[in-house]
Design a protein around this nucleic acid. Structure first.
Length: 299
DNA sequence: CAATCCCATTGTCTTACGTCA
DNA sequence: AATGACGTAAGACAATGGGAT
């Protein structure tokens, strides 16, 4: 298990076998365009693929939104002052923290105490015609708010009630908004993880396909070789070789290995020796790179 | 039973792009 | 050809509602 350093985006991929759990650590703020990954059993030195995060992608909506917000210099969720109300009171202005309160949430957060105060504070900017309107208004978190939330998310991607309240107070948001932001943030993280996992599996599939193709070719070549008459002529008379299907060791019946009886042939051995063709190499077949080998950086 | 999470979905906002006058 | 207004599709994201724990 890889430590969730910096709690950027820690990705884990579980494949059927438990031992193949992909851990991907994505740290958008530190590693803007690449993601390091590690698979238990191997740890690539180089990033395997690029992952672009919204805030780092100049074409992304978040980036644009941030840029917009920055350029305008408007904190869309700041509790509106009178000056703000005069300046940006357009009906479709994003400059509002107005949002309808979920009935569910209203039940949950029995409006009281600090949260009640926050609730009222957030409602202060509602104009008369909006006040009675239950339709929610879209808000955009300011760059600063988003940055603080992001920082907090890096530290811990879930919040306890105390942290939530403190953060909400710090940001001038309702606790419910902070909670929602964290939920949506977790969802985005998961989505990104899924995309990365998908990309990884795609690569695995491609590599396996390649290897399969290569092995098929190798088999064909060996078959062709097997059928050629010259090959037989040069063959020494076949001896009866057997190979333990379990440990893939070649054993010679009615003989000893290193002077000692080979256990494969002993009565206690539970594997039935499999006869192998005389042209099968005694040495282990050098296999081609597995997908993991391919992905593994070469030193 | 309440709190919280995840998930799917909705609603809003913004941008890019195509069309037309 | 250049320009501005307009409509629209697409994407991002805050918010909602429901089910699960």
């Amino acid at each position: 298990m890889v430590e969730k350093e910096d709690l950027g985006l820690s990705l884990s991929l579980s494949v059927p076998q438990n031992q193949h759990s992909l851990q991907l650590n994505l740290m958008p703020s530190l590693v803007p365009s690449t993601a390091s990954s590690s698979l238990s059993g191997f740890t690539p030195q180089k990033p395997l693929w690029n992952v672009t995060f919204p805030s780092s992608d100049p074409n992304s909506d978040l980036f644009r939104a941030e840029t917009r917000s920055f350029l305008r210099g408007i904190d869309v969720n700041r509790l509106p002052s009178t000056a703000d109300c005069e300046e940006e009171a357009g009906a479709s202005s994003p400059n509002s923290t107005i949002s309808s309160i979920s009935g569910k949430r209203s039940e949950r957060e029995g409006i009281n105490g600090e949260e009640h105060e926050m609730e009222r504070a957030s409602s202060r900017g509602i104009s008369d015609e909006e006040d009675g309107d239950t339709s929610r208004k879209k808000l955009r978190l300011s760059k600063d708010q988003a940055a603080i939330l992001e920082e907090s998310f890096k530290e811990h991607n879930t919040l306890n009630p105390k942290q939530k309240s403190a953060l909400a107070k710090q940001l001038g948001l309702r606790p419910r908004q902070v909670e929602v932001w964290f939920q949506n943030r977790r969802a985005r993280t998961k989505l990104k993880q899924t995309e990365v996992d998908c990309e990884f599996l795609k690569r695995c599939c491609e590599n396996l396909t390649d290897e399969n193709r290569r092995l098929q070719k190798e088999v064909q070549e060996l078959r062709a070789l097997k059928l050629s008459p010259q090959f037989y002529m040069q063959m020494t008379p076949p001896t009866t070789l057997t190979m333990c299907p379990s440990c893939e060791r070649v054993g010679v019946p009615s003989s000893t290995v290193d002077g000692r009886p080979h256990s494969h042939m002993g009565p206690a051995h539970h594997h039935r020796p499999t006869p192998i063709s005389p042209w099968a190499p005694a040495a282990p077949i050098t296999r081609g790179p597995t997908p993991f080998d391919v992905l593994r950086p070469r030193s």
